[in-house]
Design a protein around this nucleic acid. Structure first.
Lengths: 198, 198, 198, 198
DNA sequence: ATTTAAACGAGACGGTACGTCATGTCTTGAG
DNA sequence: CTCAAGACATGACGTACCGTCTCGTTTAAAT
């Protein structure tokens, strides 16, 4: 009763083309910016036909979603420093490091898409946003377990606080997302979590 | 001895055209979404020539910046409830009300632009973001004056916290920006502000 | 009972503007070619408002018709060398000299217009073409009077022959319109005129 | 050792589009006149994208040159009636018939272009004008072979005479290009050719 | 069957010239 | 010395094409 994934007939998908497209997409994005990143240019950079891209991805948005998946799939090791604030600082330091360097153009690109496409916004929310929030949720649960935070801590608000600032700074670039920022934000989040007497 | 700004020669700019374009831009944005909002369609909706739009605005981004300016220029009355948290709740309630209804499509549209254009991002930051942050800053100063908050309160972090969550929810739509949200966020911000031992 | 053309009220037409436009039209035509000769550019060159041109001329075509009139209004002195061929040679030498130098760009420009506008073609035919043909007709009548040519000489065919070659060379530039050409064409025309036994 | 023009890769040119454009160009020209014949309108009439026209032709002029080539490629059967005048009458009768009906709008259109573009004028001269003149040249050579015309007959002048009148009447429309005209012009050309004592 | 390659229909883009219209200034002759 | 008529410079306006661009689809031939 297993779902036969279909008998593999015909020429199989060329993994080199697949990878070339993902690499090219990232390269073009970095070099030329998202506005200038057209399917045409990606195909040219990858040495691949446009049709090959359209065959496997519905457009720029899903393509870059996969690029981001590739770049961000390093599973995060949840820290355990003993204190919630320490854990959060550690987690954010790592997250911010990636988000403010390699992932930065990708996340901005994907933001452009999800702001214009409700459906894609949903996909992004379910996949990336939730994954990152899950990490913070885990830390909160850990802290609640240690009685460091109240049982009725508003986990979602803490997540919003943390990732709100992250996206806000990613968008407007008015302040860095460095180690110091991680510390400050962790501190603020802890304070907010502790005193959640709404 | 005043600076004569030059005698106004030639046919003066038609204020009806000006207004028609701004109205049309907003109408099309709401009806069709930002992706489908082209200069061509705005011109058609406004009953105005494309050239007339290009004459006065460099593109969609500056046009919508002016639309937002029109919609958002109602000067905000800074509240004074006696407590920082109360003031902030009041301010955010009003802000969120506007931002989650009329201004929502505009802010999302402008986010799309500023994510793709560094220069425009700067303009937006200087004009809108700073104006809103100024309101919060004022409340913080008021609270410091009342010794409700420490003198060395990290004002910028408080602003980031508040507007970070606002933009984050505007983008991902995973949680509302209602009265309740305003209360919760004001509470969290207050907690973070009070205990800003970095 | 004469039609009072109305008392001349208001500011009279500025003859300087009038002349400036005609000069500018010719200058721009020579410098930039007919394709690039727009009303806009003529107005700029003349230091005159576009409206001032549209007030007095219906478009490029009538404007250049007047320019040509100015340049070509030197009344031709009909030659009388004693022979038709000699007379014709003399007439054509003068005509060709003008037509292949100063008048060349004008005539080509006007040809462009009349090829696209039936009505304007009629106007050109009545004014310029007929005037030039009249000169040849006069020579033919003179020659008939001297019994040099038959009474039933097909005058129109002679005209067509002469001016046909002229326009043909003006258009395609494959052969010159010089003194030698005048002699050859006069000779051919004479031969054709003499032996017009249709 | 032939010059491999490259193996034909990719989708081949759609002959239906090609033909549709040529047909549409002619249709629009006839229906609306050359002034109103824009690339945009031709594309619409042909049910073809503008880009498809620009891909294959540099502009209106080369496009209409190909249209004319299509319409005028019926190889002319050189007549041999025994006399030069007869031959020329026959040739011109056929030529004038085409030129004053189907080809008329095309030739006027192309005249407009060549009058404004030196380079295009050269192309037209080399292709069409020379082809038609070659027919007359052949007749003259034939007549010289039959000792009907002097060996030093000025062939080019005869050509200019014949086609000069043809274009002149095409432009100004002051006289027909019918059978009678063909006879008269052949007669005049013969007279001029015989007596070419320059 | 997937791939590359290139042509295709569609339509938005920024730009230019058109011819008209609105505004204010200037020049005239009539009251 | 008004004052209306009309020419003028300036420049905004609606309209219509320009030629270029990217989109997403389609068609063949090569792998």
């Amino acid at each position: 009763m297993t779902d036969q994934p279909s008998p593999p007939r015909g020429r199989p998908r060329d993994p080199k083309s697949h990878a070339a497209v993902l690499d090219a997409a990232f390269t073009v994005l970095e070099r030329e910016g998202y506005a200038a990143t057209t399917i045409e240019r990606i195909a040219a950079q990858a040495g691949v036909a446009k049709q090959t891209i359209y065959r496997w991805w519905k457009g720029k948005a899903p393509l870059f979603m996969e690029v981001l998946a590739r770049k961000a799939n390093q599973s995060v090791q949840l820290p355990d420093t003993g204190s919630f604030q320490g854990d959060l600082t550690a987690l954010l330091t790592g997250t911010f490091a990636a988000v403010s360097t390699t992932l930065r153009p990708l996340m901005r690109a994907l933001a452009v898409e999800l702001l214009q496409d409700e459906e894609f916004a949903g996909a992004m929310r379910d996949v990336f946003v939730q994954r990152r929030r899950a990490n913070v949720r885990a830390l909160v649960q850990q802290a609640i377990g240690r009685s460091e935070l109240p049982v009725d801590t508003d986990v979602e608000l803490v997540c919003d606080l943390v990732f709100g600032i992250m996206w806000y700074r990613l968008m407007f670039d008015h302040a860095p997302l460095d180690k110091c920022a991680a510390r400050q934000i962790a501190c603020a989040a802890t304070a907010a979590a502790v005193q959640n007497n709404v």
